[in-house]
């Protein structure tokens, strides 16, 4: 335990939590909320405060719930690498166990949305009609930021909605539940757990069936299509005609 904390403490220096040598930790048994508190103090308190009450570098985490911590840490957004318009995604810096411990600690401070049950993450329970409903929900609730094909899009002030390719179902669910940063919260009254599962199934469908009509040019729509036809289509054909006319008769 001490080793763990020291490893974490040494890396509080913002931006480089030397992944706290997670795998080398010899503690096979369940980490507890107290372990979570220690991990939090070592890695997160510089910005979020020792009691998670928030500082000028980071918001209060009281009441954000386990789901938020799990999402932020396991997608590698937290600990935040550097101050920017939006926390960047990286490889996760903690193991699932350590994250669970921190989640437990934050959840113990005040109630908040919890990590979803596996039942709501299982896309195989959704039939074709459910996928279709998920698609419709996605287009209505998410496409204005994430693009219909989930290719991502620009938001104001240098922020952006990321592409939604190959995201873990649990993170999709947690994103909807907690509304990270500029994303709105979709609580269970807005989109029920069944519907969230349908959205997850729809995204999974897109991942598994990438592009029916051939290479998708980044799913960026008419912009990539236009550039393609100018550069490769017309460019290629003009190159051929230069070659054709360069032959002596």
């Amino acid at each position: 335990m001490i080793g763990l904390v020291v490893a974490g403490g040494a890396s509080v220096a913002v931006g480089s939590v030397a992944s706290a040598e997670p795998s080398s930790a010899p503690y096979a048994q369940q980490l507890t909320a107290e372990d979570g508190e220690l991990l939090f103090r070592a890695n997160c308190a510089s910005c979020h405060g020792l009691q998670a009450q928030g500082t000028e570098n980071g918001p209060s985490l009281i009441g954000v719930g386990a789901a938020s911590v799990d999402f932020q840490v396991m997608t590698g957004r937290m600990p935040m690498a550097f101050q920017g318009p939006q926390a960047e995604k990286r490889d996760p810096q903690f193991t699932q166990e350590q994250t669970d411990a921190m989640s437990a600690y934050i959840a113990a401070l005040a109630p908040g949305p919890g990590v979803p049950d596996d039942e709501w993450l299982d896309a195989s329970q959704v039939d074709d009609e459910g996928i279709a409903r998920g698609g419709a929900l996605f287009r209505i609730n998410c496409a204005m930021c994430h693009n219909v094909a989930g290719a991502g899009g620009a938001l104001t002030e240098g922020k952006w909605a990321p592409a939604l390719r190959d995201i873990e179902p649990v993170h999709v669910y947690e994103a909807m539940l907690t509304g990270p940063q500029n994303m709105p919260v979709f609580n269970d009254a807005n989109i029920s757990p069944e519907e969230k599962r349908e959205i997850i199934a729809y995204l999974a469908y897109l991942d598994e069936n990438p592009s029916v009509g051939g290479f998708d040019l980044g799913s960026l729509g008419p912009v990539s299509e236009g550039l393609f036809i100018w550069i490769f289509g017309l460019g290629g054909i003009v190159a051929v005609s230069v070659w054709l006319t360069s032959r002596p008769n």
């Binding site: 094909a149 897109l206 290479f215 040019l217």
Partner: peptide, 29 residues
């Protein structure tokens, strides 16, 4: 080109409905 590169994957866009707007909505070039 037509057999290797997709253009307007309209199944991704879904049917028209005045409420949703997608990020990256552009006309043809």
């Amino acid at each position: 080109i037509a057999s290797t590169f997709t253009i307007l994957p309209l199944w991704e866009y879904g049917p028209y409905d005045p409420s949703p707007v997608s990020a990256g909505t552009q006309p043809d070039w």
